[in-house]
Write a protein that binds this DNA or RNA. Sequence first.
DNA 1: CGGTTATGGTCAT
DNA 2: TGACCCTAACCGC
Length: 269
Amino acid sequence: MPEGHTLHRLALDLTETFGHRPIGSTTPQGRFADAGMVDGLVLDRAYAHGKHLFVAFDARELTVHVHLGLFGRWAIGRSDADVVGQVRWRIDDGRHAADLRGPTACEVLDGAGVDRLRARLGPDPLDPLANPDQAWLRISRSRAPIAALIMDQAVVSGVGNIYRAEVLFRQRVDPWTAGNDLSRRQWIDVWADLTSLMADGVEARRIDTVRPEHSPEVTGRAERDDPHGGEVYVYRRAGQPCLVCGVSVAETAFRGRNLFWCPRCQPPR
DNA sequence: CGGTTATGGTCAT
DNA sequence: TGACCCTAACCGC
């Protein structure tokens, strides 16, 4: 489930449900040995930087860092809900309980640890203070394809396989364009589009990228055919006609991930 | 019941 | 580039 919008949505939900309240912290599965370090502390707020979630606790300056990886999920429910499956971390304020399953990271950090981690991350389109030039500096000096750069969390934070495919399609950028062949204009347009698409994703809790003029005949497709949960142009539509030009959508395995694009709408420069 | 799949990332070679 | 980590849903037998 997790591209950047998912984590920002989660941060808002966790803050709304548990913010400024003392919470119980346990590890039903047993694999978060430090869960007790924040047990009984006041949960200040949760926030996200790209795909990383930070749950900050009171004066002790402790923060739980969570990365969902490919399979991780949070489920917020009632406090009296039974533990089902592999729950790494449960927080509980007596009314609600939130269960974390399958994360790649769930660890307690101090302030310096949070700073170190965030220093490795590129600007996040969902951060109003983020500076796209910070990413441009790296992109414009790299010979790697933009398809690789845009998913490199040190370059840009929060873009995953769906937003990558969709934003490059919407901006008609060939995914194989080398970073140093991309124009500054193209990058600024990609960034601006990411900003609005991802903000929409936070609100809608899903990824929808298809413009109204292309959507009437496909509305409902995602729910019917594909569990990823949104209306998209090219993601997981290999072999199907492009919603804009009708050409068959292309797919290839690239660095361990599936890459989708339209060869006609996204021609080489 | 076993194999496959998934919106991610790290580490070794 | 490949091995491996994390979990649950789904599919075919």
